[in-house]
Design a binder for these strands. Structure first.
Length: 422
RNA sequence: GGAGGACUAGUCUAAUUGGUAAGGCAGCGGAUUUGAAAUCCGCCGGGUUUUUUCCCAUCGGGGUUCGAGUCCCCGGUCCUCCGCCA
């Protein structure tokens, strides 16, 4: 959500941001309502003031045992006209709030302007892309029956993952390793619910825009979380933190549920795009002046993980058209997929500035005194499992179809090699 | 699913049985002090405003009333208990 004062004073920036993000923009209608609202507000304040005065008079007259008939009558009239104006004010204000939930965040100035991902700029590449003396296979070939699509199809329908044997074990070990890695970096480990209320989903920005992409439990009006960002961020909803509490660095595991309505047919093979995947997510709440540094720090942290996993990766600064609704700036991390000959997105790290904090009313009190300010929120995946699995399997493959593991994982599996096509 | 209780500012706690939100703590600024503690003064929910002022604000939404923290209705969250359950 954007500040009302900002909407009022900088409508052209709001318009430009929406255009660059490919979002509709109702700022003109909003400005009109705002003017109406302020007019009504002045009227109601005068009426209330008069009514308060009369009430005091009535009170003191009654204490003296005198009649207050005329005051009561006038106050009654004031109340009547007040409720008429108030009613309209309520309608206008509700409509404005609804619209405010649909203005996208303003991209940072250094974000490339462009309508889609072709405008993203690669800012870093790391690791050597291995060459193979044979034609590398895709992970679904290497996994064979360990990626049991037939069974998952029976259970939930297409595009769900069912892992068996060594593949299931590898995923469990990866999750543990990731959790330990964050924990060692002095973040607080959190285990959250995996369902969230409509309000929680609104704070982080999935609702209203992406509601149809979410799985919903209708009876309770709960949503299956599309990312751990939702529960982790909402921990601090409606809080007034102290400056000394910042920065808050938390992380947690969650399954992520996405209907991805309309996405069928593209990149849906194997582990690439599924309705449920596993992820370890980091969330931060920081002082506004520190959010840019925090974004870089999180990016470094994720880069180190990929280096330890020995996966070649590149980092892109997303262009406006690829940037999510709530984000001001975002880095995407992609790993090289040897078997599919392409890059797979495994992490995105975003700075939301005060956009989510304003929706969720997350403030902090400066130690130097003064009014509470909104915190800046950030989050980043560290990391998303299925594509990391795919990349590890494809990049580590040997001619015989076995998988060589990076050292950090071999320590945990107790073996350097997994799988093998029999 | 059922019963009872609670909800006031960052936090804790008041408010004439309906009369217009009072304090403590924490925090911030200042005075005093060699320094600190203690003490004293000011600030300490939101909006508006030139400090003033005014309006709003007692979990949310309605209602009764000239006037609601207080009475009534609907909903939420937390706590206790019962039931069900891994």
């Amino acid at each position: 959500m954007l500040d009302r004062e900002f909407l009022r004073n900088e409508p052209e920036k709001v318009r430009a941001a929406a255009k660059n993000k490919g979002e509709p923009c109702l700022i003109d209608e909003w400005l009109e309502l705002d003017e109406r609202r302020r007019g009504h507000l002045g009227e109601t304040e005068l009426l209330r003031r008069r009514r308060n005065e009369l009430s005091k008079e009535v009170s003191s007259l009654k204490k003296e045992g005198k009649e207050a008939g005329s005051q009561i009558l006038e106050s009654k009239e004031a109340s009547t006209s007040l409720s008429t104006i108030d009613e309209e004010l309520t309608v206008v204000d509700a409509r404005m709030k609804e619209m405010e939930l649909r203005f996208p965040n303003i991209p940072d100035p250094d974000v490339p302007v462009g309508k889609d991902e072709t405008f993203n700029s690669v800012i870093k590449s790391s690791g050597e892309i291995r060459t193979y003396k044979f034609k590398p296979r895709a992970h679904w070939e290497l996994m064979g029956e360990h990626l049991d699509s037939k069974s998952s199809g029976m259970i939930t329908g297409s595009n769900f993952i069912l892992l068996r044997g060594w593949a299931a074990k590898l995923q469990r070990i990866l999750i543990n390793w990731m959790m330990d890695f964050h924990s060692d970096a002095k973040m607080e480990e959190v285990w959250t619910p995996f369902l969230a209320t409509r309000e929680s989903m609104t704070v982080t920005g999935q609702i209203p825009k992406l509601e149809s992409d979410m799985y919903r439990v209708e009876k309770d009006d709960l949503f299956l979380v599309p990312t751990g960002e939702v529960p982790l961020t909402n921990i601090y909803r409606n809080s007034k933190l102290l400056e000394k509490d910042l920065p808050i660095k938390i992380f947690g595991y969650s399954p992520c549920f996405r209907r991805e309505a309309g996405s069928y047919g593209k990149d849906t093979r194997g582990l690439n795009r599924v309705h449920q995947f596993e992820k370890v997510e980091m969330v931060r709440m920081v002082k506004p002046e520190n959010s840019e540094a925090a974004l870089e720090e999180m990016a470094d942290h994720v880069g180190r993980m990929l280096e330890l996993l020995d996966l070649p990766y590149r980092v892109s600064l997303l262009a406006t058209g690829d940037l999510s609704f709530a984000a001001a700036k975002c880095y995407d991390f992609e790993v090289w997929s040897a078997g599919q000959d392409k890059w797979l997105e495994v992490s995105s790290i975003s700075n939301f500035r005060d956009f989510q904090a304003r929706r969720g009313n997350i403030k902090f009190k400066p130690s130097a005194g003064g009014k509470p300010e909104f915190v800046h929120t950030l989050n980043g995946s560290g990391l998303a499992l299925p594509r990391i699995m795919a990349a590890l399997i494809e990049n580590g493959q040997t001619k015989s179809g076995k998988i060589d593991l990076p050292e950090v994982l071999a320590k945990r599996t107790g073996t350097m090699t997994l799988g093998g096509l029999s």
